[in-house]
Simulated assay, not measured.
Amino acid sequence: MSSSCCSPNNTCSTAAQSSVAVDGVRTVYAVSGMTCGHCKDAITKAVGAVDGVSRVEVDLASGQVTVVSAADLDDRVIAAAVDDAGYEVTGRAA
């Protein structure tokens, strides 16, 4: 069967597992003051410049910023980057 997700050595490979390996650590922050595309761009640029950050996802509707990194990052470093962009981290999102 060529459609199986299992390899010849009986290890399973699923999209969820490979996604975790590719994505790394996901941390979601609540950020206040974001209202438009400019806000999204400013946050993405500022947080994306932090060492170790591989991806930034900004959701204006929920006021959340998801930071993807290879390892855990110091929340204070992310908060400082957000602050430099003119916004405020109000904490980690639930």
Rank of each mutant, 00 (worst) to 15 (best):
N10L: 08
C5S: 13
V68T: 09
A42F: 03
A16Y: 05
Y87E: 06
A15T: 11
S4Y: 12
S19G: 15
S4Q: 11
C39H: 06
S19E: 15
V53T: 02
A81F: 03
A71N: 14
S2N: 11
A46S: 07
T90K: 10
Y87R: 05
R92D: 09
V31T: 05
G37P: 03
N9F: 01
Y87K: 01
R55D: 13
C39S: 11
D51Q: 11
T44L: 00
C36N: 15
G63E: 09
Y87M: 02
M34N: 05
A80C: 08
A16G: 05
G48K: 12
A85F: 00
T35Q: 06
M1V: 15
E88L: 11
A49K: 03
G86N: 02
M34D: 12
G91P: 00
V25M: 11
G33V: 07
A46T: 01
G33M: 08
S18Y: 04
C12V: 11
A16C: 06
T44A: 11
D83H: 03
V53Q: 03
D84N: 06
V58K: 02
T66Q: 15
S13Y: 14
P8N: 02
K45T: 15
V56N: 09
Y87I: 09
D74M: 07
D84R: 05
D75W: 02
T35S: 12
K45V: 14
S13R: 07
V82A: 12
V56M: 05
D84S: 07
Q64K: 15
P8M: 02
G86L: 04
R76A: 15
T27K: 06
S4I: 09
A79L: 03
S69P: 14
E57L: 04
D84K: 09
T66G: 10
E88F: 01
V89D: 03
I43D: 06
D84G: 05
V68I: 09
S3K: 10
V31G: 06
D75V: 12
E57K: 01
S32M: 06
S3P: 09
C5G: 14
D74L: 04
Y29T: 12
R26E: 11
A85G: 01
L73D: 03
S32F: 00
D74G: 03
C6A: 09
R92P: 02
V31A: 09
V56R: 02
V67T: 13
T66N: 11
D72W: 00
D72C: 01
D51M: 03
C12F: 07
S3G: 13
A61W: 00
V58R: 07
C12E: 13
T14F: 08
C39K: 07
L60V: 04
K40F: 04
M34Y: 08
V65A: 05
A85K: 02
S7H: 01
N10R: 05
S54P: 04
T27N: 04
S19D: 15
L73H: 03
E88R: 10
V25K: 09
D75Y: 01
M1F: 13
A70S: 15
D75I: 06
Y29D: 11
S69I: 13
S7Y: 00
A21Q: 01
E88N: 08
Q64I: 10
L73I: 08
V58P: 12
A16M: 08
V65W: 01
T11I: 08
T90L: 15
V22M: 02
A81M: 02
E57T: 07
